[in-house]
Amino acid sequence: MIVDAHVRLGRGREVALEADQLLATMDALGIDVALVAPDERCIAYDNRAGNEHVAAAAAASEGRLIPYAVANPWRGRAALDELERARDAGARALNVDSVLQGFDLLDGLLDPLLDFAADAGWPVYVRTGTPPSALPLPLAALARRWPGTPFVMGRSGATDFWIDAAPALRHAPNLYGDTSYAPWDTVLVELGRDPQIGPSRLVFSTDAPYTVPSSELRRVLDWPVDDDARRDVLGGTILRLLDPALH
């Protein structure tokens, strides 16, 4: 089974993706399931509209789309209420973008949402990269404070903070890397052969609609790892994070 661990549905500043397009791409590429997050505006501002949009898409997908929930932590108690609504509507993971949402991973604003995720048994996807408020190592420090919650290091620091991806993964054993944008023959091979990391700590995502999804999948298929490791990267690991009891 192939699971795409991160896609955004809706209209961003320069991109757009709707559920029918996504499902057609998944069919073409042999991707069985995708975790879907709301678009940029809804991550930043209109959390309710975004959560409702991805919940409706998931409900109509016969199990192929799994919704993330988003809530801007600046909203305080209202953010937690929004996560409760999203959970009741089917959300199964928390999605965080500290750049779009305007906070620092270590300023404490996100802590109540992480408590909620821990109670709900949700994994947490956090977009990382170059911005100082979205770097891999502060995310590792944050993840260590919720050791029972799996965190996915979205984009794994692409690109110049790929150099911090391995130290972050070594520092926080509950942190998982994301394959999007990462060449197998430079970045993934380094993470995969690290005895403290290994391929099973990485999850495949296309990060659509920002990418060429077929290229994202091709790269992981071309990566010469054994079949068990590839199964984990392509879906086994993220399925375990979503539901440890079933996998």
Partner: peptide, 21 residues
Amino acid sequence: GLSDRKSQDYAVARVAEIDGW
């Protein structure tokens, strides 16, 4: 030039990816 393979696989993939832009 940075690849673990002399065939520079990621660079070949980056050229091919232009088809999907």
